[in-house]
């Protein structure tokens, strides 16, 4: 808590042109809200001047109204943490990349691109990472519709409870072990 507030003061002094706010919810941690277009500048400053040398986590969040990206930075020598967050519109989500600052951000951003459809400006190799290349849609968005088939493999499977229903025809078939033993005896 105090880490974030202290870092907010330091950042506001160093980068006076960028509007930064400390936000928090009813429970949990607080974070610094950064305008999306300035995120690379802010993180660059934290990385080079404040010694936040470790990107612990980068994640996308879909709240239903907007997309958010949360950055969790850490300084290994000082053992401090700083959480940053940006908000993006759902239809045109474009963010400057931070893959030149942290090596690991490369894959983290690819994952957010794959699962949320956020476009990272300046990323060297932005392509799908989890899903196949010909996959449609971005699965972790709230309005994502689950596919009914992929490459001819249907996603349907009958509910076993239906099969247990006495009125269901399939139950009339003989149980498997009996028919097996019959085959065995005739051969």
């Amino acid at each position: 808590m105090s880490d974030v507030k202290r870092m907010h003061e330091t950042l506001s002094r160093a980068l006076p042109d960028i509007p930064l706010e400390v936000e928090s919810a009813q429970a949990g941690m607080s974070w610094i809200h950064v305008p999306a277009e300035h995120i690379a500048a802010v993180i660059g400053h934290l990385r080079h001047t404040e010694g936040f040398d470790y990107l612990a986590c980068l994640t996308g969040i879909d709240t239903g109204e907007e997309l958010q990206i949360a950055y969790t930075l850490r300084s290994l020598p000082d053992k401090t943490e700083c959480a940053l967050k940006i908000s993006l519109p759902r239809d045109e989500a474009v963010v400057p990349t931070i893959s030149h600052l942290y090596g690991v951000a490369d894959w983290f951003e690819r994952e957010v691109f794959d699962l949320y459809g956020v476009h990272f400006d300046g990323h060297p190799d932005l392509r799908r990472i989890m899903m196949p290349d010909d996959w449609e849609g971005h699965p972790l968005r709230k309005d994502y519709v689950f596919p009914s088939e992929y490459h001819g493999i249907s996603a349907e499977r009958p509910d076993p409870h239906d099969l247990l229903d006495p009125e269901y025809e399939a139950c009339a078939v003989d149980p498997a072990p009996k028919s097996d033993s019959k085959e065995g005896s005739t051969s």
């Binding site: 919810a25 429970a27 949990g28 612990a56 969040i61 959480a83």
Partner: peptide, 22 residues
């Protein structure tokens, strides 16, 4: 309640973190 949290443990393969938003 509404809120966000990042918890992390030292797993056998390194940092395992959970970013939970409620």
């Amino acid at each position: 309640p509404k809120g966000e949290v990042y918890s992390a443990v030292e797993s056998s393969r390194g940092e395992m973190g959970c970013y939970l938003v409620s």
